[in-house]
Design a protein around this nucleic acid. Structure first.
Lengths: 162, 162
DNA sequence: AGACATGAAACTTTCATTGTTGCGTGATCG
DNA sequence: CGATCACGCAACAATGAAAGTTTCATGTCT
């Protein structure tokens, strides 16, 4: 449904890079999120610049975390991918002479900016480690079940790696 | 910047329909928001269904308010245009087996849903009449100035009507 | 009857993300 | 050294939703 999946995808990858593999190639990561390696490199380039990830070329190369997950907030990741627009709705960007339009847009922008501020504050208070904990709780719950097939599905990304 | 301008545009039009004209054709309204009459009808059809607007065909026809502005909240208008997605970012819609992805998306969706809830609550507490007051304050401030040219610009939409 | 105005369907345009291909560069292995 | 692996980057195509456009039908007033 949403147009920009980068934040969700990046968080997904970061947790795998901490919990399940030490280093992964763009190809392997592309497999995790069902896309291709170029999209992965493009998405992760911003995190390299912000020193959240390290990439190495050549044999045995790939992507690796530069810091522990508890030192990476959702806001860090959001900013690293370029702070894309949060909202789909809003007012036009072109200036206008109409005072009605100005008044409407000013009030609307105010409400949106406040919503954005609050959401980004939440993002800054959630670390990727928190999400990893969420995952592990779900995983533990599945292991408690007799449903081993579902438990195995949690490692889907790594069964096909070889 | 944003992709969906319908809410902003509709609010703009509603205020003009209350303050500056009693009834306007799709052509005149298209002139107000710099678009064409078909876009206007498409956008306003939802407000007719919700009985915020009335449209009449034929000679002297056009669009007219069905209720006073203080009985129309921003949320009413938002819902009348079809409750389009508020956010540009989010998680994928397709179900997955990966527990990491599930955990990430669940937490992300939670934060987004809370942000949406708060924003819609704000929208429900702001009436279009409030925005009209904002406009009138701006207009009064301009009239206090000696800058009559700017004051006239507030009526740009209606100088060209004839 | 003629002009005006909405209603609705079908099509094109626009724009950002996503997806894809190709080539260059650096690093490791044999 | 040469081959292979893997990232870096540039350029282009595909996708999807809103916006824009064209066309015709329907209803209404003079």
């Amino acid at each position: 449904m949403p147009r920009d999946l980068r934040l969700s995808r990046m968080l997904h990858v970061l947790i795998h890079l901490d919990r399940h593999v030490e280093r992964a190639t763009s190809d392997q990561i592309a497999g995790m999120i069902s896309t291709n390696p170029v999209v992965v490199r493009r998405m992760m380039a911003g995190l390299r610049k912000k020193e959240i990830l390290i990439s190495e070329k050549g044999h045995g190369g790939g992507w690796q975390l530069a810091r522990p997950l508890n030192a990476i907030s959702l806001r860090d990741v959001y900013q690293a991918i370029g702070s894309p627009p949060l909202f789909n709705i809003g007012s036009g960007a072109d200036p206008t002479d109409c005072l009605v339009e100005k008044a409407v847009d000013a009030r609307l922008d105010l409400a949106m900016q406040e919503a954005e501020r609050k959401l980004l504050k939440q993002f800054s208070e959630i670390s990727v480690e928190d999400l990893a904990h969420d995952f592990e709780q779900r995983f533990a719950a599945l292991q408690g079940d007799a449903d081993e097939a579902s438990a195995n599905a949690a490692f889907k990304h790594f069964r096909t790696d070889g």
